[in-house]
Amino acid sequence: MSSERQSKNSSESKSSSQSGKTSDSRKISGAKSSSESGKTTGSKSAPGSKGAPESGKKSAGPAVAERLSVFKTYKLFVGGKFPRSESGRVYEVSDSQGAWLANAPLASRKDARDAVSAARKAFGGWAGATAYNRGQILYRIAEMLEGRREQFVREVAGGEGLSPAGAAAAVDAAIDRWVWYAGWTDKIAQVAGGSNPVAGPFFNLSSPEPTGVVAVLAPQDSSFLGLVSVLAPVIATGNAAVLVTSHRAPLPALSLGEVLATSDLPGGVVNLLSGTAAEIGPHLAAHSDVNAIDLTGADGDLARELEIAAADNLKRVLRPRAEDWTADPGTGRLLAFLETKTVWHPIGV
């Protein structure tokens, strides 16, 4: 399967831009000088996997003095800043062929705690922002993504082993998902709330409010569309999020941090941690300043273990289930992290 995909990729990449198929700039540079790449990473698999694009590029006639590209150091996104993991750990991220793509930070318990504390600080302001303002910022995220569409297509294709067309479809759907949720921010309260006709002289109104700090274990398979599908509804309603990315394909998520940082989203509203759900999940599930947890990215046994830990402070738990990220998202994920507040007041003169 993957080899078919790969060969299809390479044939497409010949005619279009070389960068269209490879997963990020490192690969391009690697293709141009595989010895360089091999030297940098010491990777066993990198040269082999680059055979196809390399030949594609050679046929396009590489210049002798081709410029050496600048690698990106992928970092966490916490409190609006881009720290390395406090643990100093990284892990190797590779494409579906096993070729090295980047070293991603391997987030630790301390990173998770820092992220929760950043999220808690940001929560009040974000929950208190007008729904209109939140909508504008979510829409701004879509705008910023649109401008970096090619980069995300590369990263998604590399991380998930998708064809350029498949990756482009996922990225386009993810951008559109931000637009969908941008429009929900100032409508969900009318759909989920309303006045209650109590049998007495009382004004009685129920309104949805954000639950608070929500830990999100993002889906493992869909590193960007799935990620956006679980993250956007959490923050659309005014929650702050601490998200653990797909372990295997964290790069689109980490790059999303750069988009969020330039979209007027207040620092700390979204915090992105690359690492493993099995390592960070238990700390988030047991953290008493986390109000809810989305277990989408956890498998059966881990999900159960985390749900048990989450009971310590009665976190709201969204259990993992079969998902089709291309389907109409509905309002389920918006409603999952809302509380209903009902206010009574007597009516009289």
């Binding site: 209650n196 006709p197 109590v198 049998a199 007495g200 009382f202 009685n204 129920s206 639950t211 109000n291 402070n313 009665l314 709201r316 509380e339 209903t340 507040k341 009902t342 206010v343 009574w344 007041h345 007597p346």
Partner: peptide, 27 residues
Amino acid sequence: RAGVVWANTFNKFDPTSPFGGYKESGY
């Protein structure tokens, strides 16, 4: 941060009015 807020009244209940808590008061 509470599921029911009574203003200038208290302990009023009605079948049409949602009741329930935030945080460790349940879900």
